[in-house]
């Protein structure tokens, strides 16, 4: 899978309340929640995000609550992939489970500016900044997790094995 889009950059410790505030969680409708994605820390996100865009962020992306609504609403907002220096543990699992592609690559994060055109090859793990011509090798997933991704998420993988 190849993802290509404009980079939307954030700093470290982007928490799940910032991604989708709990005040909206009386609903599980992801299209509705996507309208409030990143609202409290970046009110411009919803206006500027284009299908395929890639979030590029610092350490500990997705810290805080276990709400799966966070990766799901990022996906519903049109983001194709999140590249970060590191992910909070629960967000990492949730992203894999709901089929939001994620990649850890600290070097790439340091060299991507907001608005750069970025390409992520999910098969090889290569991340390229098409604006500057640089590229990096992201961290590969363990085989166990790769199988969940290939199956199309945890539900599909569980059914496959039953």
């Amino acid at each position: 899978m190849l993802f290509k889009g404009k980079a939307i950059t954030y700093g470290r410790d982007i928490d799940t309340d910032a991604i989708i505030a709990a005040r909206y969680l009386n609903s599980s409708d992801m299209a509705e929640l996507a309208e409030h994605c990143m609202e409290d820390i970046d009110p411009t996100f919803v206006e500027r995000v284009q299908p395929g865009d890639i979030i590029v962020a610092g350490e500990n992306f997705g810290c805080g609550s276990s709400r799966e609504h966070a990766p799901s609403c990022i996906k519903a907002a049109g983001i194709s992939c999140v590249v970060a220096k590191s992910f909070a543990r629960i967000f990492f699992r949730n992203a894999i489970n709901v089929g939001l592609p994620i990649m850890e690559c600290p070097d790439a994060v340091d060299s991507v500016s907001d608005g750069d055109i970025v390409e992520v090859n999910a098969d090889t793990g290569v991340i390229s900044n098409l604006t500057t011509g640089q590229s990096w090798q992201g961290q590969a997933f363990p085989e166990f997790i790769q199988k969940i991704i290939e199956a199309g998420g945890l539900v599909a993988r569980t059914k496959e094995r039953m």
Binding site: S65, S66, E68, I90, R93, N94, N97, V98, G153, V155
Partner: peptide
């Protein structure tokens, strides 16, 4: 499916938060 599930560690139980799908 709540991040503060780690609370029961106080009892000597391994407990941790996960998302709705897990």
């Amino acid at each position: 499916a709540d991040s503060h599930t780690c609370t029961y560690g106080a009892l000597g139980a391994f407990s941790t938060g996960m998302g709705s799908t897990d």
